[in-house]
Design a protein around this nucleic acid. Structure first.
Lengths: 229, 229
DNA sequence: TAAGATAGTGTGTAAAAAACACTATATCAA
DNA sequence: TTGATATAGTGTTTTTTACACACTATCTTA
């Protein structure tokens, strides 16, 4: 089977920069390429767009095929189109970034990619194509985004203590925050539901758990509320 | 001549939302389509990506071909990829937005498009494809962008009085600003060069002219200076 | 039961944003 | 030439927001 067009067409792919957090730092999910070009090298998960499928669908499909991840927070990042970015032919890639919480999403390399693994943001190996530039762009975007939109919850399990939420902000913004000021600000947004539950299995006083209140958040977005940190 | 590929490929276009300002309001440049589909309807200038050309180059090339505009401020906006957005086939479009000043750039429809004209942002006709959605996205982006990056100068001639610069902000943000606060803030950025010239041909006291100091601006960007309005 | 670890809480100070009004200088028309 | 009109240009006060800062409470573990 083959497809013939009157004009030459560039190819189109969707690539994903998947962020997660563990106790230590911000992580990025990479896959080890099973085919040429860049066979054996690490790269962002992603693949070719199919006709009839939106690029967000492409991104989600490839992400699941290559890493098993699905139902993640996903937003478009930027489209990279320099003709020389792929040695085979002109390939345009529409990059997305995703946020996942490690607790709910186990990662396993699927058939498409020979391997998948998390890497600390400061410990990224050499990447295939221009994926280092994509990753840098995504990291900058994440930093900028969290300052005026509460997306940090996407990196956490459903219930969490404020300490952990603060550490999300600290790891992404890469600076320490004042505990009292942080709590004041985040609670004043009115998008956290205080639960009648506390942490378990911690070697110190257990903290109260909170949950992100999406209904309230959506209502406030509607009203033009400002979520600036 | 034809091109054959092993896999089906979506087509790729670049479209431009070109903004300008006149005395009354914010304008958008549209072209009237000369071919089907949507023949005779208004649309954003743009066209198909060629292999070997970055999408920004595509956008600039099509813009010049269709409207005669070149050397404009241009930034990527968003990529639209719903398969049904073009009735012919699956066409992905990478949208850009451009800022031009009407004084320096005369617009003339070229061969590609049957007609080109400016429309007030509140007076846009029905548009081809999903171009209304693209335009809305661009307008929102422009509003957001000007609040933390001094791009308003791109819409003005080289020399301008502060009153006109203020009106740029007012028209884009769609609200009145306090003259004294505006002057304080914009001058404190230190990116305006005060000229030894004043307006001419005005029916009132003539105002001093200023010029955007790109060197200073670039220096301050380098240093991470914040241009928030 | 003492040591260690984190939870949880309020106030004062500094910086930034917003509100606000008058005098100066030019043009234009009578 | 003079009065009407139109915009230029200029500081201060008030309000809001951001930042700095330290102690007591509660739980765990040895």
């Amino acid at each position: 089977m083959s497809y013939t067009y009157k004009y030459a067409k560039p190819a189109v792919t969707a690539d994903c920069v998947v962020f997660a957090l563990d106790e230590e730092d911000l992580k990025v999910l990479l896959i080890q390429r099973g085919q040429e070009p860049f066979k054996g090298q690490w790269a962002l998960p992603g693949g070719f767009a199919e006709v009839g499928e939106s690029l967000e669908d492409t991104a989600r499909r490839e992400l699941e095929e290559e890493t098993g991840l699905k139902n993640v927070f996903l937003e478009q990042l930027y489209t990279f189109s320099k003709p020389e970015r792929d040695p085979r032919e002109h390939v345009i890639t529409v990059a997305y970034y995703a946020l996942v919480n490690l607790a709910d999403h186990e990662v396993h390399a699927s058939t498409d990619a020979s391997n998948a693994a998390w890497f600390g943001i400061d410990d990224i190996p050499a990447l295939a194509f221009d994926h280092d530039a994509i990753l840098t762009t995504a990291h900058e975007r994440l930093r900028g985004k969290i300052s005026y939109q509460p997306i940090g919850f996407e990196l956490l399990p459903e219930k969490f203590p404020l300490r952990i939420l603060q550490s999300v902000y600290e790891k992404i913004l890469d600076r320490d925050l004042d505990k009292r000021n942080f709590r004041k600000k985040i609670l004043s947004m009115g998008i956290l539901q205080e639960l009648d539950e506390i942490e378990t299995d911690v070697g110190h006083r257990a903290a109260r758990l909170y949950r992100f209140n999406k209904q309230e958040y959506d209502r406030k977005v509607e009203q033009g509320f400002n979520f600036k940190m």
